[in-house]
Each structure stands twice: as C-alpha cells, then as structure tokens.
C-alpha cells in the first residue's frame, strides 16, 4: 500500500515531510486536512492518530506521528543519501541535537507568528494578550539569534557548517519560512538583520529544487490574504 501523509501545508512540519519525500523520489499520497476546519479532530482522523495532531504518516498499516520521528523513520526505511541522517554516531548526534533544540526553541517562532493575524483572521480565535505575544516574541528572537550566530557558520552552507542538508535543515527551514505570515516589513526586518539565515534559506531552496517553492504556495497565498486584510484595518 502506498505511503500516506496526512497534513496541511500551512503546518511547517507537514511541508518539511512532503518536501523530503519529493526530493527523495519516494512514492506517497498527500491527504489534505484543513486545520482551520479542524479536520485533524474528526473521528476519521483520530482513528489514524489518536493525538489528533498533524502531520501523521501511515506506512503499510504502521501509523506514525511527530515530525522528527517521521523524518528519522523515512531516512532509515527508504534508500536516501547518508547526509540526510548520517549513520556515523557523531554525525548523527549532531543532527539529533538540532532536532531536539528545534522542539524547545525555534518552535516558538510558530507561536509568535500564530499569535498575530493568523489566530484572529484565519482561525477566528480570540486575540492573545500583549504579554503572551511579547513572551513568544522574545523566545523566537533568542532562537533566531542562536541560529544566526552559532548554528550557521562560514564553513558550509547548511546547519553546523555541513556541505549538504540533513533532515534538520528541512524541518528547521520550514519553520523559519513561517515568518512569511508576519507583516511583510516585519519579516524583512528579521531576515535583513540575519544575513546567514537569509543565505541558508536560499541554499536550501537550491538544494531542494522546485519542491521547496511548490509546497510553500499555500503559505504565500495566505500571506497575501493577510497582507490585504491588514491594509484594510
């Protein structure tokens, strides 16, 4: 049975997995679930992932959740180049540490981006408090600064100075692109002051080919929608 990926392209980990599958020519079907319509909480989907979270993957009757777990699983079960998830213990530990860092640090980017117009205009939820937004902003800024000054180096274009991308580059890259949903001038200001991140995103786009842009179409159109709404406020 063909591999099935369940997700929404507004969700950054869903994009990361879809792009990884495409780049490695792995046969799969993408099943769209709309987060705004809360389809990830439907009984049909809860039967697949009782946590009610996307992305989820079904591989021949085996159900998986958690983006980093899915990426590790795919890199281990499909024949993909070693650079995605190296077999060598030290190299693998470097990638694992990035994936763990992501969870508790850069993932705050999503919370900050969401607490803006997305929460109110797209998901129709109540406005967050000023303190909540400020806290998410600080967490995000700390994480982006660490990415810029420490995780990206002059040695090579990818994370930790590697010459080729790992699954951490894809996952973390798809988180950073979520910044596009901020007001355009805010997103530009964040990237203008962090040239290594900007450069890394370009390298990632080159390495991942047309799939990177293709799976960001939904983000781009939502960004445009939000920008037009903002101009009317």
């Amino acid at each position: 049975m063909v591999l099935r990926l369940y997700g929404d392209l507004l969700s950054q980990p869903t994009r990361a997995i879809a792009i990884f599958l495409e780049v490695n020519l792995i046969d799969y079907e993408l099943h769209f679930l709309s987060l705004t319509k809360r389809e990830h909480k439907s009984p049909e989907f809860l039967a697949i992932n009782p946590r009610g979270q996307i992305p989820a993957l079904v591989d021949d009757g085996f159900n998986l959740a958690e983006s980093a777990t899915i990426l590790r699983y795919l890199a281990s079960t499909r024949s993909v180049s070693d650079h995605w998830y190296p077999a060598d213990a030290r190299k693998r530990a470097r990638v694992d540490a990035l994936l763990d860092w992501y969870h508790t640090n850069l993932r705050n980017t999503a919370k900050y981006v969401f607490s803006g117009a997305l929460q109110v205009l797209v998901f129709k939820l109540p406005e967050p408090t000023y303190e909540e937004v400020k806290k998410h902003e600080k967490d995000m800024t700390d994480a982006l600064n660490y990415l810029e000054t420490t995780l990206l180096t002059r040695e090579g274009p990818f994370l930790l100075g590697e010459s080729e991308p790992s699954i951490a580059d894809v996952l973390i890259g798809c988180e950073v692109t979520q910044l596009k949903l901020l007001p355009k001038r805010d997103c530009e200001a964040i990237l203008d002051s962090r040239p290594r991140i900007r450069n890394w995103l370009q390298e990632l786009e080159i390495a991942l080919g047309p799939h990177f842009a293709r799976f960001h179409v939904r983000v781009d159109s939502t960004a445009k929608f939000l920008e037009s709404k903002r101009s009317k406020l």
Binding site: R51, F62, E66, A68, T69, Y73, S76, H103, T104
Partner: peptide
Amino acid sequence: LKSRTGVDTLLDWYHS
C-alpha cells in the same frame, strides 16, 4: 525500526 519509532515518538512527544 517499528520499535525504534515508538521510542522516537515518545522522545519527541516529551519535549512539547
């Protein structure tokens, strides 16, 4: 792999 994936899922779930 299937057992490992179970452990990985728990480790990822733990973080958040």
